[in-house]
């Protein structure tokens, strides 16, 4: 889910930037440092939309650098366990498929034992079978539903894994009102 939140960061600025455009320098440095980053707590920082407040600077002993506490508004994307969202399928293989919702990758497993994440479930419905070929896909036995690259699916996040620069999700389409929304090629 996307949120509009206020975050704070201590920005260090070299004395050469002190002058009329100090604030401008601070903001452009903030954007460069923060936009596109990801943390487990706040998720992906998509865009800074405003500066709430620039606090009093504090000279750091021995360096001449000054630290400014900056409060800024930003749009973040933070996936939650239990969240239901729509995503685009990016890759299909016999282990399952990957889908993307904005900056986050979601894996929906078809494999019985996904040991690393301690899942022993099939998260793709049992009646969908893997078909290899140029366009690998999962198809129901009657051929009515197909999941392939670029399909739009509605899925539920059942697990998240956070590392230093990324959040990775595990999803399922095996529940009521989940699954394919549209096949690529058909009308949207």
């Amino acid at each position: 889910m996307f949120f509009h939140i206020v975050l704070e960061r201590n920005m260090q600025l070299h004395p050469r930037h002190f002058g009329r455009d100090l604030r401008e320098k601070l903001v452009s440095k903030l954007m460069k440092d923060v936009e596109g980053t990801c943390s487990g707590r706040h998720g992906f920082v998509v865009a800074i939309t405003g500066i709430e407040n620039v606090g009093k600077g504090l000279i750091r002993d021995g360096t001449g650098f000054v630290t400014f506490p900056v409060k800024y508004q930003c749009v973040v994307f933070r996936p939650f366990k239990g969240e239901i969202l729509e995503a685009v399928v990016t890759m299909v293989n016999k282990m399952g498929f990957f889908a993307e919702a904005g900056p986050v990758q979601i894996f929906v497993s078809n494999h019985v034992s996904f040991r690393l994440l301690k899942f022993h479930l099939l998260l793709i419905p049992d009646d969908m079978e893997f078909q290899s070929g140029d366009m690998p896909n999962y198809t129901t036995s009657d051929g009515s539903v197909k999941i392939q690259k670029d399909s739009e699916v509605r899925l539920k996040i059942i697990g998240t894994r956070v590392d230093a620069t990324e959040i990775f999700c595990i999803g399922t389409i095996k529940d009521d009102f989940l699954g394919v929304i549209s096949d690529p090629g058909t009308t949207s």
Partner: peptide, 24 residues
Amino acid sequence: ILERKYDQLQQIVFEKSLQYVKRF
């Protein structure tokens, strides 16, 4: 919100988010 900022410095998280929200 993102369309308003479109002319700014682009990076991958922004691009992917914009594509996603436009699609959905």
